[in-house]
Amino acid sequence: MILEAKEIRKSFTEGKESFDVLRGIDFGVERGEIVSLEGPSGSGKTTFLSILGCILTPTKGDVLIDGEVANAKKLNDIRKRSLGFVFQQFNLFPSLTALENIEYALNVKGIRGREARLEAERVIEAVGLGDRQAFLPRDLSGGQKQRVAIARALAGKAPILLADEPTANLDSVVGTQVLELFRALAKKENRALVIVTHDPKVRAVADRVVKIQDGRLS
């Protein structure tokens, strides 16, 4: 398995009270597999995604990337090397063009110069925005922004892609197009894809649907 979570527990403390958000989750995903992680609001799915993405550390349990435990001291490196993110709000840099948004992410991952430029051009072509690469985010539609975000996640060949509600800010038709594109590219490049969603359309592109409720998988 490329991504594995073992007995993940997460508690948050607010004042004197402690809340258990995740109550012991075991989870795994293979290369090339697409998993839809569904659950109602407050079920803990975004917290779980943050832990899978090595952004949050679990209170108990381990995340394993390609069989290796994600050490809390190396989370930055793991994110650079192995993970690509797609956010609900796109989170593109407004001052950078579509191509530069992708290239900058590659720069952060340590890929620079011509290599970064070629890889950014490859992925922006792959999401069908070759003719929009010099556009600033403000000049792109919601669907186009999300495609740039997908290209940014794909860039650098991270084996694991994590998406948080990627269709939440898109209309139904565009949302479907984005999901199909996302699925096609993940399959073609043999990437594992975990999508946190409320959107039933995601089920259509997922290989497996996992439900989370009250901090447990059901």
């Binding site: 930055n76 490196d77 994110r79 650079k80 993110f85 956010f87 989170n91 952060v108």
Partner: peptide, 16 residues
């Protein structure tokens, strides 16, 4: 601030 959060999320450190 969210852009800086994004830099961190995609692997950037405080040095970046």
């Amino acid at each position: 601030i969210k852009e800086f959060g994004t830099v961190k999320a995609i692997g950037g450190g405080n040095a970046d």
